[in-house]
C-alpha cells in the first residue's frame, strides 16, 4: 500500500454549483503534496472531505486504506492531523490549555501528551512560556502552536490548509522548514497554498482551477510538460509601446509581464534575434507561476 490518500472521482456540490468536480489523485506515504489553486478553486472543500468534515456528493476517499464510510470516520480521523485555514486556537486559553484540549479531543493519554509535546516543541524549537495566552502571541507563533496542536496525537497524515496565509515572509520560510522536518518524522504532508513560490518546496503538486484538477506531478515534471521549449526573460531597452508589445506577443506562445521584465516562450526559437533588437534577453527556467498561468490561459 503506497498511497495514504486516494481520492477517486470526487464531486462536491453546493446546490447546483460544483465546488469540486470529478477530482482524482493520490498522495504517497512520506511526501509533501502541494494542493494549489486560486481562492475559490475548491482546495478547502477537498480537504474537508478528506478530513471527514463534509460529505462528498459522489466519489470515493480512502485514507490509509480505510474507505470513508459510516462508522469508519473515527478510525480515519485518528490518522489525520488537521490545521484549518484560520489557525483555530482558543484565544482566551493559554498554549498549555489549548494543547491539553487538543489532546483531549483525540483521547491522548497524559503521558503521551507530555512526550509528544516535548518532541514537537523540540522540533519547532519552541521557547515561549506555555502559560502565555494565545491572544498575546504573534501570528507566526500562533501558527506554530496550531501545528503542534494538529500533531499532538501523532497522525500519519498532516493536512494543512493555507498554513502560511497571513504570516510574515520570515515566518513563512521558517514554517516550510518545519514542514520539511515533518517528513523526516515519517509524516505525510498535504498542504494547500495559493503562493506559487512556496509550492516549489513540495515533492508533488496538484493544480486546481474552478473545482477541477488541471495538472499533477513533480515540480520539474510540471515545468517540462508545460513548456517544451526554452523560456526567456526579456527586459525592454526602452519602455514598450503598444505596437511593440503587439508585434512581440505575435511571436510568442507565452508573453507574461513579470515585474519590469517579461517571461516569454517563442513559437519558433529562431525569432530570438528579432527580440534582441529591442530587449535584453536571457534564458530562464520557468517558475511555477508561469506554469500556472500557462495552464490556466491555455484553456481560454
Amino acid at each position: 500500500m503506497r498511497n495514504i490518500v486516494e481520492v477517486q472521482n470526487l464531486c462536491v456540490k453546493f446546490g447546483d454549483f460544483f465546488a469540486v468536480k470529478d477530482v482524482s489523485f493520490a498522495v504517497t506515504y512520506g511526501e509533501i503534496f502541494g494542493f494549489l489553486g486560486a481562492n475559490g478553486a475548491g482546495k478547502t472543500t477537498t480537504i474537508r472531505v478528506i478530513c471527514g468534515l463534509t460529505h462528498a456528493t459522489s466519489g470515493e476517499v480512502i485514507i490509509a486504506g480505510e474507505h470513508f464510510i459510516k462508522g469508519k470516520e473515527d478510525i480515519i480521523k485518528a490518522n489525520v492531523g488537521y490545521m484549518s485555514q484560520r489557525f483555530t486556537l482558543y484565544n482566551d486559553l493559554t498554549i498549555k490549555e489549548n494543547l491539553d484540549f487538543a489532546a483531549t479531543t483525540h483521547n491522548v493519554s497524559r503521558k503521551d501528551l507530555q512526550r509528544n509535546k516535548s518532541d514537537l516543541f523540540d522540533l519547532i524549537q519552541f521557547n515561549k512560556k506555555e502559560s502565555s495566552l494565545v491572544s498575546e502571541l504573534p501570528s507566526g507563533i500562533k501558527q506554530q502552536v496550531a501545528l503542534v496542536a494538529a500533531l499532538i496525537h501523532q497522525p500519519k497524515l498532516v493536512v494543512l490548509d493555507e498554513p502560511t496565509a497571513g504570516v510574515s515572509p520570515v515566518s513563512r520560510a521558517y514554517f516550510w522548514e518545519l514542514i520539511r522536518k515533518l517528513t523526516k518524522m515519517n509524516k505525510t504532508v498535504f498542504v494547500t497554498t495559493h503562493y506559487m513560490d512556496e509550492a516549489e518546496n513540495c515533492d508533488r503538486i496538484a493544480l486546481m482551477r474552478s473545482g477541477e484538477l488541471i495538472a499533477i506531478g513533480t515540480v520539474p515534471e510540471l515545468k517540462n510538460n508545460t513548456f517544451s521549449t526554452q523560456m526567456y526573460n526579456i527586459t525592454p531597452k526602452k519602455p514598450l509601446i503598444n505596437d511593440d508589445a503587439e508585434s512581440i506577443s505575435r511571436l510568442c506562445l507565452l508573453f507574461e509581464p513579470y515585474g519590469i521584465h517579461y517571461h516569454v516562450v517563442l513559437k519558433h526559437d529562431a525569432d530570438i534575434t528579432s527580440l534582441e533588437d529591442k530587449c535584453y534577453v536571457e534564458k530562464v527556467n520557468p517558475s511555477l507561476e508561469d506554469v500556472f498561468i500557462k495552464l490556466v490561459e491555455g484553456d481560454r
Binding site: G52, I75, S84, T88, N91, T105, H106, N107
Partner: peptide
C-alpha cells in the same frame, strides 16, 4: 464562528 468547531469535529469525537 471562529472555526474552532471545525477543529473539534476533525477529531474522532
Amino acid at each position: 464562528e471562529s472555526g474552532t468547531f471545525e477543529t473539534i469535529i476533525a477529531a474522532p469525537i
